[in-house]
Design a protein around this nucleic acid. Structure first.
Lengths: 237, 237
DNA sequence: ATTATTATTGAACTTAAATTCAATTTCAAC
DNA sequence: GTTGAAATTGAATTTAAGTTCAATAATAAT
């Protein structure tokens, strides 16, 4: 039932030659099954049979579409990583000088993917710890966003004498703000943290505010805080 | 056929069973070999044979001392995690109200383990992403340190209306500061970050200063900065 | 010196999972 | 409705690693 949808020739995967719409759909069904298995057991416990069972097909069919689990999961992760990289779309409604809202916009997408696809994010963490090539790919995506700040750092802080490499280090240090928390809140779902129910927008704002404080050593503009205004109370004035 | 006399090597109390000094030494040699293999290839690529080869013994000997790789590595990690938990020792020379130096002291030990045993820290990250039980163990160790702050938060910030659970969330958000950077600098050894050569003391001070800013929305006391005084320049006053 | 205990070896065995493939079914085009 | 390409099956095979164990060596105890 697909209108003139292009027969995917772009597929770098092996055996990507001719494939019917029916086959395309089966391939996607396997990927969706894999996503569910990832959420349940994580990459290292996932077996080919888990995926084919979840999809309700025979084990052998897997190899008609994928070389191995790694190929499938790589494709899956790529789809999500691409979302992180759409910097222009992310910052569409924010002015360049408005750092608090820029930070917020980036956290919003990051929080969203964590909340909606915890298995995918856990898998990204697992691959990053394991495989230098994947880590490089993931880090490039992250670096790209950090460089939005690194590249203009000298203009934002004209009095600061840190050189380029030192700024890189500093921004990477701050860039970690929230990663741990998102992982514990959305992937691990730690009950003690879950005691506070936060919407995605609230989580993103809190994290943006924390990073803002680390970066500017002051609070974000009070008027821009929609949920996290109580962060202004955290002070010893 | 010696019913009760034979102390099976598969005894659950393997670690405590009878063992000569010679055996004790061989056991340790396997652990040290495993540490080197971990540094080289990480846990998921590590094979029993890698460890016995590295130690220069036959494959079968491994099972005389350990049930499986996981048991060996668990013991190895425990030894290091214990070091993180010695809070009293860590804070020995610091007064309770001196938050900057308390933060510094905690970062110092964390930086040291990262620098000296990157394979161990990577392995902790791998296990944490994989195994709920281990994650729980590791997080308990981390939480204990975070609670040094969480428990006194209302006294440190008397004007702050956040409740206990919200403070927990906040502190976990800030607690991630530096994890990412230490991982990239010491485990991944990213050349772009390595362009700046930092001593352990310098790294610890920078991270403590960043966290201090996030926590207090201001700079740490200038007089206490030994290496990172240029962080004071990062401001838009 | 004799005996008992523990350490060590490495080839043989076991296991779990990945992978193949010949046979069969489905479907779309003609 | 015939045909052929693609999809699908699942039992059979392969693979890579874990694991055992009978035999031997080293060491300690008496």
């Amino acid at each position: 039932m697909k209108p003139a949808s292009k027969p995917s020739v772009h597929d770098p995967a092996r055996g990507a030659g001719r494939r019917s719409a029916r086959g395309e759909a089966a391939r996607r069904r396997l990927k969706e099954a894999a996503t569910r298995v990832l959420d349940r057991v994580g990459f290292h416990q996932m077996r080919v049979k888990d995926v084919t069972d979840e999809a309700g097909v025979a084990a052998g069919l897997f190899y008609h579409y994928f070389k191995d689990l790694r190929e499938l999961v790589d494709e899956l992760l790529d789809e999500h990583i691409a979302g992180f990289e759409a910097v222009e779309a992310i910052e569409r409604d924010v002015s360049k000088g408005d750092w608090f809202n820029r930070l917020r916009a980036h956290y919003e997408i990051c929080v969203r993917v964590h909340a909606e696809h915890p298995g995918i994010m856990r898998c990204i963490a697992q691959f990053s710890a394991d495989d230098p090539d994947f880590r490089e790919r993931w880090k490039r995506s992250f670096d790209r966003r950090l460089h939005l700040l690194i590249d203009v750092f000298p203009y934002v802080f004209p009095k600061c004498s840190l050189n380029k490499a030192e700024v890189e280090l500093l921004v990477h240090g701050l860039g970690g703000v929230g990663k741990e928390l998102m992982s514990e809140y959305y992937i691990d779902r730690d009950p003690r943290l879950r005691a506070v129910e936060l919407s995605q927008a609230e989580m993103a704002e809190w994290l943006a505010a924390l990073l803002y404080r680390g970066l500017f050593a002051r609070n974000p503009p009070a008027g821009q805080l929609r949920y996290a205004s109580r962060i202004l109370e955290i002070t010893r004035e």
